[in-house]
Computed example of a mutant assay.
Amino acid sequence: MDITLVQGDITTQEVDAVVNAANSSLLGGAGVDGAIHGRGGPEILEECRRLRASSHRGGLPTGQAVATTAGRLPARWVIHTVGPVYAPGEDRSALLASCHRESLRVADELGARTVAFPAISTGIFGWPMADAARIALETVSAAETSVVEVRFVLFDATAYGTFNDLIMKFARKS
């Protein structure tokens, strides 16, 4: 699998599946979640409401993933995953890793070959960028998946630089 980095807007990525850093309600929010729902249009929200009325009545648990249409995005699907809120006194890194593994599992079920991820939990959920990047890159690198390209789409130069520094360290180790 190829792991690539892009600085930009995840809602413009032409991939099979875009991963949404969702909130547990699945009904939209701020940050990446708001951007995906806003640009993707009402089709995404309609499917999320159907999920809430059926299989996810209590919302989507942290670390899990579920797919919907991508609506008006240039992708086929949105894979929604709920990242953990960072808590300095509690190790929640397994939940953050689960977001990436579960998203790739759902991608495999869909037959997605290319998947774009944001930096999950690094916005309002407060996860330090360097630690989130390490967990994301380690988890995706170790995953058994049919996905051929994982693209991390980083919104700003700081996030891109952090992921790039770490991916370069991984490249030197191999």
Rank of each mutant, 00 (worst) to 15 (best):
A67H: 08
A67L: 07
T68I: 10
T68Q: 15
T69A: 02
A70I: 08
G71A: 03
R72V: 00
R72W: 08
L73C: 11
A75R: 03
A75G: 04
R76M: 01
R76S: 13
R76H: 08
V78D: 08
I79H: 05
I79K: 04
H80L: 07
V82E: 15
V82L: 13
P84D: 00
V85M: 10
V85D: 01
Y86Q: 12
Y86V: 10
P88D: 12
P88H: 11
P88Y: 13
G89K: 06
G89A: 07
E90L: 14
E90H: 13
E90Y: 14
E90V: 13
E90M: 09
D91R: 02
S93N: 03
S93G: 14
A94Q: 15
L95P: 08
L95C: 06
L96S: 10
L96C: 11
A97E: 14
R101W: 06
E102S: 15
E102K: 13
E102C: 09
S103V: 04
L104H: 08
L104Q: 12
R105Q: 00
R105S: 00
V106Q: 03
V106K: 03
A107T: 01
A107F: 03
D108C: 10
D108N: 11
L110A: 09
L110F: 06
G111E: 08
G111K: 02
G111F: 09
A112V: 08
R113N: 00
R113W: 02
T114S: 14
A116I: 13
F117E: 05
A119Y: 12
A119H: 12
A119Q: 06
S121L: 10
S121C: 13
T122L: 05
T122E: 07
G123Y: 14
G123S: 14
I124L: 15
F125C: 06
W127A: 01
P128E: 07
M129G: 01
M129D: 10
M129P: 04
M129V: 12
A130T: 08
